[in-house]
Design a protein around this nucleic acid. Sequence first.
DNA 1: ATCAATCAGTTCTTTTTTAGAACTGTCAAC
DNA 2: GTTGACAGTTCTAAAAAAGAACTGATTGAT
Lengths: 154, 154
Amino acid sequence: MKWDTLADEPCSVARTVSVIGDRWTLLILRDCFLRVRRFEAFQTGLGITRHLLAHRLKKLVAAGVLRKIAYQQRPARYEYVLTDRGLDLHPIVMGIVHWGDIHMAGDSGRPRLHRHKGCGGLFDPVMVCSACGEAVTARDVTVEPGPGALGALV
Amino acid sequence: MKWDTLADEPCSVARTVSVIGDRWTLLILRDCFLRVRRFEAFQTGLGITRHLLAHRLKKLVAAGVLRKIAYQQRPARYEYVLTDRGLDLHPIVMGIVHWGDIHMAGDSGRPRLHRHKGCGGLFDPVMVCSACGEAVTARDVTVEPGPGALGALV
DNA sequence: ATCAATCAGTTCTTTTTTAGAACTGTCAAC
DNA sequence: GTTGACAGTTCTAAAAAAGAACTGATTGAT
């Protein structure tokens, strides 16, 4: 399988992975949600090579996840900010954070805490069913082919 | 930055990404949640090279996400199944699916549907606040250092 | 008894990607 | 007019992945 064909698979996981399924991309997105916006800030914060950072940012812009906003002219300089499409990745990033908090935090505890502006409390993300509102775990879910399925389920 | 140092960063995203932040690994996990268990099934379904599949499975077992269960002796043959730790990745995978459903499904619609056994309905995953139960979006969240933070926030 | 098939890998070479460092160009401030 | 900030680009070397063939244990068919 070639990576450029991944986006064409009849699978939402494969399609999403074709956009964000790369280690540096996920770390860049983490920084985006932490309000990092500029090339130098990404580069020094992450330790990514400048070459790769330029490449990844370009890809995220092309995918509609980030957009460039000029913050000065002469020389033209841009900030990279999340689009609505990019903001929709928040549950994925929060899910990643939460798994790390639960399974990878050492004795010193979790590195970051999240506060919900709505209620003012510290919180963990909980996944619930859009139909009934109850919390959902892996064992509560069955999968069936949808209209966009082309063939076998797997 | 070397990838083996990623797990030691004071960041739950980096730590989780050190386990699952790779395209093939995410696709393998998708198949795990779809009840794929055997080497040949992963390999033919994904089109991954056998070399890489063996490597990724070994890594996931070492990380405690999958475990090997013998389904026959002579020759010894194993199935790879999700541990509890692996099942906890479900919200991440569902988040990935949901983003693809919303942003990458074409006119033919989403490739797969999910049914909640609890209520019997088709559903989308919704992320809510563990403190108040309300739905949470990116704009509703602020981040602060936790006990495991070693230094700067970003 | 022999042959083909199944399954889970391993081993090789070639190609692609990433790391790491240095370089370019535009401007502002000193 | 020199230095420094910023946002890249361009190299080469090292690492990872692709692609294909091979191993080895066993079962079932001929």
